[in-house]
């Protein structure tokens, strides 16, 4: 490492007119508190890019969860409301019903959405509430140091499953996208990942699609992200990307789960 030398920028290229990517303006300048390599940062960025591209910064209201992304409102320069743990879909329902002209989304982890809040999630989906659920499935309770979640993979070691998740006594990981897709009132449900450049591009398209459906008032949409949690998975960020590719996306298959007029 020690013989690496920084190469100066090329002034012929580094000019405002040649910018092809810069941080979305609706993402604040506040440094993210997330661990190095955490998918929460990537998803925050994509969401704010889409908000900027659709020019809806003053038309969208987000609901932040309890979990590592509890401070999401510090990073997204839009109107946001904090919900009690698991209750984001209930809070989102209220906001949308009071202000039907606004875009409403919830941002939730798997512990929030699929454990303590599973009732709120399922009933909001079953009522076909006109909102977008952004669901970050990293297979653990990240914030509280990596306990088993309903989404933890079979045999996966967590702080509360030191010998691995035994499906005989602990049940099987919940595939929330497939579960909600069965409800007649849900409109668009897709599962994405952000573990490499190609998947990030696709994930952004899915977010855009979901918010376009919100614009048209089509109904309940969910974009699930197969996330990571390098800290609690006890992995480096790169190892966690490999785990997403080789293990997580085997169980949580990436792609559209329910599309309008389709499956």
């Amino acid at each position: 490492m020690s013989n690496l030398v920084e190469v100066p920028v090329n002034p012929e290229v580094v000019q405002d007119q040649f910018v092809v990517y810069k941080k979305p303006k609706t993402l604040t300048d506040k440094p993210l508190h997330y661990c190095p390599g955490c998918a929460h940062g990537v998803v925050h960025k994509l969401l704010m890019e889409v908000v900027d591209e659709m020019d809806i910064q003053d038309k969208i209201i987000g609901v932040a969860p309890v979990g590592c992304s509890v401070f999401a409102y510090d990073y997204m320069n839009i109107d946001m409301q904090e919900a009690a743990h698991g209750r984001a879909c209930a809070v989102g329902t209220a906001i949308k019903r009071m202000m039907p002209d606004k875009f409403v989304f919830t941002y939730q982890g798997d512990g929030d959405l699929a454990a303590i809040g599973i009732a709120e999630t399922i009933h909001a989906a079953n009522r076909g509430e006109n909102m977008l659920v952004v669901f970050i499935n990293n297979a653990v309770y990240g914030m509280t140091s990596g306990q088993m979640a309903p989404t933890t993979l079979p045999d996966m070691v967590t702080t509360t499953t030191p010998f691995g998740r035994d499906v005989k006594t602990m049940g099987y990981p919940l595939r929330m996208s497939e579960l909600l897709a069965q409800l007649p009132a849900t409109y668009y449900i897709t599962r994405q990942s952000v573990h490499n450049a190609v998947s990030v591009r696709k994930a952004k398209k899915a977010l855009r699609q979901a918010l376009e459906y919100q614009k048209e008032g089509k109904g309940f949409c969910m974009v699930e992200f197969v996330g990571n949690c390098p800290s609690n998975w006890r992995m480096t960020p790169l190892e966690s990307q490999k785990f997403v590719e080789e293990k997580m996306t085997q169980y949580y298959v990436v792609g559209d789960v329910k599309v309008p007029g389709g499956k």
Partner: peptide, 10 residues
Amino acid sequence: VCPEAIITVY
């Protein structure tokens, strides 16, 4: 892939 959104590309 950058979670911090700190790379500007030209």
